[in-house]
Amino acid sequence: MRYGKRESMGMVLRGDNLITRYIKFWFLFAKYEVLKQFSSMFSVVFFFFGKSVRFFSFLLLLIVLQQHTKAMAGFTLEQVIIFFFTFNYIDLISQIFLRGVYMLSGKVRSGEFDFYLTQPMNLLFRTMAGNPDFNDLLLFIPLVLFSLWYTFTFIPTITLWSFILYLIFLIHGLLISLSFHIFVVCLGIVTTEIDNTIMVYRDISQMGRFPLEIYREPLRGFMTFVLPVGIMISVPSKALMGLASPMLLLFSLFITWLFFFFALRTWNSSLKMYTSASS
């Protein structure tokens, strides 16, 4: 692989402010990952096909259910599909940007993580954003188009304000997802075990494919106050459909930032516990 003069780290660092510098870093990582991932078109095709099958098979299940029943826990099945779209947005965006988390345990075990410690870059950023996944981007674009068509066709109550609210709380949902990934990274650094932990997050987030109301207490409370996957997916979806009260929105803002703050504090603590045992 040849790196041009403009793409060298030195050029990235020189004279840029912090945000521009990190955006350039990310594009640099992205370029290498695109080259790596698309070097095997065979894999790209299978991953794209697999992810599409997963998306459409679940949608098919909901459509089949629609023929038997009109509601699920007080929501119409058209509304349940909005929850499913929101879940997919958060899941795919997290996959695209935070794929590095999945590779951390190998790096901790092999000692490669020590190398990151020596680099002049935020370690959390390097760990999480270092391996963006572009297989998910291929699915994300058609998902956006399809979900926009579906939403404006089948949910006629949407207003400009509710759409803006949706975007605001979708970003907050992504912040919760980021916090979850930070917690997983912390666990990986301390224990070197990450594989099933990140998959537990994926499974728990899948619980958000449905409205929170389908779950019994105390599970529902657990998903709201302890592991806020309910807030991550339910609140944006309800905001879009005009079903979220101002109190719920304020509460979710509070929980989101509290969770994020707690994740960052845990990161700082876990980094101090890193022993570099593998090197």
């Binding site: 699920m72 019994r216 599970l219």
Partner: peptide, 28 residues
């Protein structure tokens, strides 16, 4: 930890499936 997380995953998948069907049968 990986082992217990794997066990937890098995339980989550059942909880999701049962909760989904309980919610559906609440209206049909």
């Amino acid at each position: 930890i990986s082992f217990w997380m794997w066990r937890l995953r098995q339980m989550i998948s059942i909880v999701i499936a049962i909760s989904m069907w309980e919610a559906i049968f609440s209206s049909t």
